Amino acid sequence: MWTLRSQEVTVVYGRGSISTLSQFKGRRVKVVTTKSLMETSLLKDMLKLTGGEQVMGPSQHTPEDQLVQLREALRDAEVVVSLGGGSIIDAVKISHEGYHVSVPTTLSGAEHTTVAGFTREGTKRSIIRRAPDMVILDPDALRYTPRDLLVTTGVRALDHAVEALYSVRASPYTDALAREGFSILYECLWNLEDLLQCQIGTWLSSQAFMYAGRGLSHIFGYIFGPRFNIPHGVTSCISLAEAIRFNMTFSREKLRSLGGDSLPSRIESLLERWNVRKRLRDYVSLEEALRLGEDLAVANNSSENPTKMDVLEAVEFIKRVY
């Protein structure tokens, strides 16, 4: 028996859909964004549409101390627009209880979930918050995003689909979302020609993840990303293929629709195509990495990953991705 509680979110998608923001003109609007977008025509257009005020958001991995500052800056806002990737979107989820419009500029998928991540003392924490009230998927919002960032966050979205499919909480609903999301997203990421399709694939994959939960590759990212300043998408580039291999015995039948035994190789071929195949050695020494073996095992075993691991298996996993 499955129990699934759905949510009400307005998703506006298609080229030119940013114009939807004009409906908020006349209200107290604040647009939270990143330093890299501060001087862009994208932000200027959004401020003109809303009559709003720009606010600098937190840095990568959403440090907790920066959330305190953001909460104060948003205190008098009626509508808050998050313009950026997962860190900006999660920061607004945590810091603002009013109406939230998300305009993602990456393919991380944070805009489609109720999970919000932040970093406390070098450790990634996740809490449940309201999803944005409105999500605007406009491919024009991706035009300032570097290609490497699009690809690596897209791999993060592929991670959502794969781990939702073999999750112990998977259901027929999440399986359908995961399979279709993976198919659309993988094809789009191979050529990066139709970015709206990439956004739609991310949408489906992230919904599957929200309802089915997280697995080993996500757990790896939560532990190693903040500790060694590895971007979210890059952690998936490091860990996803090996996480699939680790779970293959349990999940081979379910993964067959995504490529079965060849799925890890398909993922690695995509990474090589865009030169984003990364190793843990690019960020940390093996000695430092192995110290987190017990943390990885404990966190994996409390997640929705189908295969549990002891500390020795966690250490071996770290060595394989190193």
Rank of each mutant, 00 (worst) to 15 (best):
Y144N: 15
R227W: 01
D45C: 00
H96C: 02
R129N: 07
K124L: 01
Y322F: 14
V11W: 03
E316Y: 00
D65P: 02
S206V: 00
R279N: 12
R252K: 13
W2Q: 14
E8V: 06
L216T: 07
I267A: 11
T152P: 01
T3E: 15
K319V: 03
L255D: 05
G52W: 10
L70F: 08
A170M: 02
A164P: 10
I238N: 06
G259M: 04
D45F: 01
G225R: 05
L37Q: 09
D76R: 11
N275Y: 07
G213Y: 03
D140Q: 10
A157K: 09
F209A: 13
L43C: 11
V68F: 10
V12G: 00
C237R: 07
R179K: 15
G233D: 10
E39N: 15
P231S: 09
R266E: 12
T202S: 12
G84S: 06
Q197T: 06
R27P: 02
R5I: 05
V284N: 04
V12Q: 12
D148V: 04
G16N: 06
P146F: 08
F228C: 06
V92N: 13
R27T: 14
L150D: 11
V12K: 15
L312S: 14
G98Y: 12
T249I: 00
R227G: 01
E180A: 09
P58Q: 10
S206Y: 00
V80T: 05
E180T: 11
G260K: 09
A241P: 00
T114W: 02
I89N: 15
T33W: 06
G52L: 06
R147S: 05
L83Y: 04
T113Q: 05
I94R: 05
A297C: 09
L312W: 03
V12Y: 05
G122D: 11
L83F: 07
K319P: 00
A157W: 07
K93R: 08
L83G: 09
N247K: 11
L47Q: 10
E180N: 15
Q69T: 09
P58D: 08
Y166F: 15
P231Q: 09
V311H: 06
N229L: 03
G225D: 03
G117D: 03
V29G: 02
R273N: 04
G86I: 00
T307H: 04
T123H: 12
G213S: 03
G293D: 07
D76K: 14
D295T: 13
I230H: 11
F118Q: 07
A116V: 05
A241W: 01
D261W: 01
A297M: 07
N229S: 13
S251T: 05
G260N: 06
L196N: 13
D45S: 13
E64Q: 12
P306G: 01
G86S: 08
V276E: 03
Y173H: 14
G109K: 08
S82N: 02
D90I: 04
P146T: 09
I223V: 15
D261V: 09
D261E: 14
K124H: 10
